[in-house]
């Protein structure tokens, strides 16, 4: 960051909003703003993680049994897909920094592609759960051991992956906007802050999944 700040300090450009004194102030403010927003997101998911930890401690057996019925191969594939999308996102930020417009556009498209892929797989998993009667409330039937608490894991499964999927959809919306502005050539090595900030959000959503996958599928 510090090696760019000299450039940012140099002179104002048309991208500095009226309330800021200079580009450096704007750059630092928007980055801090995004980090604070991600902090609220941590607390948002934290509520569900808290509930998960408590129920897991109370009903370890039921949770262990319940998680055997999740589709580990699909979950693992989605994990890989998201990690790759994080990579393409990082490359997008780098392209913007270096001013490679074409590369930037393609990297955004690839990131969106992987994001959509993830959601597609998630949809397959959900419909599979429906067919196996593993949707709590609606049609839950559990044949095996574990007792009624098995259903609690599935409540958490749908709430947590559902909230994550909502964040993915929002992310795709943001990426669409980023794509359109990138095609118009808004971003230059002097002004690529929005790409960086969207990147932060995208990485955060990926990291949430990195936690969800082992919690809901593996252990």
């Amino acid at each position: 960051m510090s090696d760019h700040s000299a450039v940012l300090d140099a002179h104002q450009d048309e991208h500095v909003a009226h309330q800021f004194a200079n580009a450096k102030q704007q750059y630092e403010s928007s980055n801090l703003g995004m980090w604070l927003f991600l902090m609220t997101e941590v607390m948002f998911f934290g509520g569900m993680f808290g509930a998960y930890v408590i129920y897991r401690t109370w009903y370890p057996e039921a949770f262990k049994i319940a998680s055997t019925a999740t589709n580990v191969p699909l979950g693992a594939m989605n994990t890989v897909v998201l990690i790759v999308s994080s990579l393409t996102m990082a490359l997008a930020v780098q392209s913007a920094q270096l001013g490679k417009k074409k590369m930037l556009v393609w990297m955004i498209i690839l990131t969106m592609f992987f994001g959509a892929w993830f959601l597609g797989v998630k949809a397959i998993e959900y419909s599979e759960k429906w067919h196996h009667h593993h949707v709590p409330g609606a049609n839950f039937i559990w044949e095996g051991d574990g007792g009624r608490e098995v259903q609690i894991l599935y409540c958490l499964y749908f709430a947590m992956t559902g909230m994550h999927a909502v964040h993915m959809v929002v992310g795709l919306g943001i990426m669409t906007w980023l794509l359109l502005t990138a095609i118009k050539g808004h971003y230059t090595p002097k002004y690529y802050n929005p790409v960086e900030i969207c990147g932060l959000y995208w990485h955060f959503v990926d990291i949430v999944w990195i936690f969800l996958f082992p919690m809901l599928y593996l252990i």
Binding site: Y59, E61, A62, D145, G146, G147, R148, E149
Partner: peptide, 18 residues
């Protein structure tokens, strides 16, 4: 919820009375 904590040496055969 008889299946939750089954005593050693017995099967989980009791139905729920919930």
């Amino acid at each position: 919820n008889p299946r939750a904590k089954v005593v050693e040496g017995f099967q989980a055969v009791m139905p729920t009375f919930q």
